[in-house]
Design a protein around this nucleic acid. Structure first.
Lengths: 265, 265
DNA sequence: CAGCGGGTTGCGTGATACGCAACTCGGCCC
DNA sequence: GGGCCGAGTTGCGTATCACGCAACCCGCTG
């Protein structure tokens, strides 16, 4: 609705692709964004004829990547997506290796633990372990969260070249009074993250939400993911923060070691 | 490797699709199955030229549905899949409505709770809530499990026409001495499930694993999903089973009510 | 250093996916 | 109740686009 650009991938050039595949993927992403859509609506979104959109959707439906409501009607994402996603995480070393450690950490500190990676200008949750059974965070694996307003996001950004950062974050949207909204401020913050070894976000995405994140590195020493502990600000105060940071850093390092990281260079 | 059929979807006819989209999806499924594969390998799998496979993979990569290992090399499923999956579950009424109820049930009985739907001849886990923090089930959302050897699977099968069942289950693979491997036996078992209102599987998929499942229905009274409680057989004995069954049935009915089900016809 | 195996790219052609238009079907308004 | 409208679906002919070919690049191995 608010979106206007109808086709193509944002950053990349208009270079060669397989047109119909690209369109099919666009359909999937539109459905991910809107929840459900009809053939005509989809055709409008990608600027093709109804029949073309229909055939694409039909191809996707045949493999159950999308489903139509009840015989006739609108389409939504289907179970095939979940099958693929299951295979994705099952195969991903990162999730495999981190799961047990995350669970221990969550139990130890009693807060929610998340693992996130960079994905097209956002932090993408790969795994989540709930802490105290009390209130459950509404976020879930697969959700994308802004880079500049979260501890995970800042952690991931801190591993990149300053020149790249600009392109990744886009507009620095304000969520709360504490959100960092200027590029120089962000650069300064990231510098601090680098020297300190962990990232913090207090009331920056949401009032009352605090998080601490530490880097997960692969065998080459690159920061490939971020592990965070998050919870209500009233429970994670200034006194407790440093000790949480230590715990997350230790846990993240454990994961890094399992991924082939040999320790600080 | 063991697979031979190179193209197409098993059940459906060879009718019209968008060829390149279909091939692209096949690539995703091959990657889901094998974990990773190179261009040449993929080309072999779907019987096309290297360059064709490459272009398809490139199209998928541009949208991060697949990623290549490190610049050069093999391909695996990418984060884009997870993004889509996140949107899928976030939008699915079923998961939305069931989550809280599952959690309560898990807490109440201290065992793991699963929600599964039918997806191309297998039960597909849509959601999972761990019970006692002790041993964690290794399965995960997105995993596919056989229909004839699980409580969820039998529950889902029991909602179908007998004529359809044959096509869904395929070969009745044996997992343990208790696995049902003949079609007549299965039919008998399903009949029992229907009259009893819940399904059981004791040591049928794995020795030491017991589960009980109840139906989740939509507004039209169709069984669209199954909710199960599962745990080690030594903890779920013959005495405890009936009371667990009652608990699952009540929980599943709660979910059904939220989905518009008006109670038994 | 040469050979090999795998990924990548330019090119011409024919299969194929596209747009068009007609059809079906359900819902709504009159 | 009938006719209109809008949305999904299908057959057809054609221009496009995706395919196969072959050459190329590159890292690895012997």
């Amino acid at each position: 609705m608010s979106n206007s650009a109808p086709v193509g991938v944002p950053g990349a050039g208009p270079a060669s692709t397989v047109q119909s595949v690209d369109r099919a993927i666009t359909i999937l992403e539109v459905l991910a964004r809107t929840g459900e859509a009809g053939v005509t609506e989809l055709a409008g979104e990608l600027g093709v004829h109804k029949s073309t959109a229909f055939r694409l959707v039909a191809a996707l439906e045949r493999r159950s990547l999308v489903e139509q409501q009840h015989g006739r009607g609108k389409y939504r994402l289907g179970t095939g997506i979940l099958r693929l996603a299951g295979a994705t995480t099952a195969r991903l070393d990162l999730v495999q290796e981190s799961r047990g450690i995350s669970r221990l950490l969550a139990q130890q500190v009693g807060e929610t633990v998340n693992i996130a990676v960079l994905s097209d200008g956002a932090a993408l949750y790969m795994d989540q372990v709930a802490g105290s059974s009390a209130l459950q965070p509404h976020n879930w694996v697969g959700q994308r969260i802004p880079l500049h307003a979260t501890s995970n996001g800042k952690m991931l950004l801190s591993g990149m070249e300053p020149s790249e950062i600009d392109g990744q974050v886009g507009e620095l949207r304000r969520f709360t009074a504490n959100t960092i909204t200027s590029l120089p401020d962000l650069a300064r913050e990231l510098e601090e993250v680098r020297t300190r070894g962990y990232a913090i976000a207090v009331d920056e995405l949401e009032i009352g939400l605090t998080a601490v994140a530490a880097p997960i590195r692969n065998g080459h020493g690159e920061t490939i993911a971020s592990m965070s502990v998050s919870g209500p600000t009233f429970r994670i105060d200034a006194r407790r923060l440093p000790q949480l940071a230590q715990a997350v850093m230790r846990a993240a390092e454990d994961v890094s070691l399992r991924l082939g990281w040999r320790g600080a260079a």
